[in-house]
C-alpha cells in the first residue's frame, strides 16, 4: 500500500533527512517525490536510511555525473526542489554556482527545482553520511552558505526599497534575519570543523 505525505522543508536538509528516516523507521520507503508530495510504500521498518545533499550550485551535467556516481554505489537517488515555485517558465541567476549552473531554468536539462538530492541506501548499521572528511565538509558547508548570503542580500535590498510600506519592509526584514541566522549556524559549524582539523593536524 502506498501513502502520500505533504511536507516542505525549504533549505533544512537535516530535518528532511530526519523525517525520511523516521518514515523508514515506521516502515515506509520513499518511492517518488514532487514539489510538496512524498509518496511512500510499505517496507520492513528501518530497512533504508536517507541523506539529503545540496547540489544547487552545480551545473546539470555535473549534477547528473554525481547522481550516477552515487547510483554506482547501489544508492537510489531522487532530485528534490528547495524552492516552492510553480511558475511554468523560470530563469534564475545563481552567482555563487559553478560554471554552467549560474543560469538555472526549469527546463528538464537544468537545475531549477533540482537543488537537492535525496539519497537512499539499505541500512547497514552504520550512520549514513555522504561527507565524512573535515576538508570536504568545510568546503561543502561553505557552498551551503552562498545561497543564504545571496538571499540575505536580496531580502535586505527589498526591505530598504519598500521602506514606505511598513508591512512589506518588516516581512523582508524578518526574512533577512532568518537568512542571517542560517549563515551564523553554518559558519559556527565551519569554525568548529576548522578547530577540530587543527587539533588533528
Amino acid at each position: 500500500m502506498s501513502i502520500v505525505r505533504k511536507r516542505f522543508f525549504f533549505g533544512f536538509m537535516e530535518s528532511q533527512a530526519k523525517w525520511l528516516n523516521s518514515m523508514s523507521d515506521k516502515g515506509y520507503r520513499l518511492t517518488e517525490c514532487g514539489k510538496l508530495n512524498y509518496r511512500f510504500k510499505e517496507c520492513e521498518p528501518a530497512k533504508y536510511r536517507y541523506a539529503v545533499e545540496y547540489i544547487g550550485d552545480r551545473s546539470f551535467e555535473e549534477a547528473e555525473k554525481y547522481r550516477e556516481f552515487l547510483e554506482s554505489f547501489g544508492y537510489r537517488v531522487f532530485y528534490k526542489n528547495m524552492n516552492l515555485d510553480f511558475a511554468t517558465y523560470k530563469l534564475t541567476f545563481r552567482p555563487w554556482a559553478d560554471k554552467g549552473g549560474r543560469l538555472s531554468s526549469n527546463r528538464p536539462d537544468s537545475t531549477y527545482n533540482k537543488e537537492l538530492l535525496i539519497v537512499e541506501k539499505k541500512d547497514d548499521g552504520k550512520p549514513f553520511r555522504l561527507h565524512t572528511e573535515s576538508d570536504d565538509m568545510i568546503g561543502y558547508y561553505r557552498r551551503l552558505c552562498h545561497p543564504w548570503y545571496y538571499s540575505a542580500f536580496i531580502f535586505a535590498l527589498f526591505a530598504v526599497l519598500l521602506w514606505p510600506n511598513l508591512i512589506c519592509s518588516v516581512i523582508f526584514g524578518l526574512l533577512t534575519l532568518l537568512c542571517i541566522a542560517g549563515i551564523i549556524v553554518w559558519n559556527f559549524r565551519i569554525r568548529r570543523l576548522i578547530k577540530d582539523r587543527e587539533t588533528e593536524e
Binding site: F73, T132, Y140
Partner: peptide, 25 residues
C-alpha cells in the same frame, strides 16, 4: 568508486569509512 570505498574500509578494519560525497570530491 564503491570498490575504493570497500578497499579503504577493509584495509583499515573499518576505522576509516569514507562517504561517497567525500570520495567523489
Amino acid at each position: 568508486g564503491y570498490a575504493i570505498m570497500q578497499f579503504i574500509e577493509e584495509k583499515t578494519g573499518g576505522r576509516l569509512v569514507l562517504g561517497a560525497g567525500s570520495l567523489y570530491g
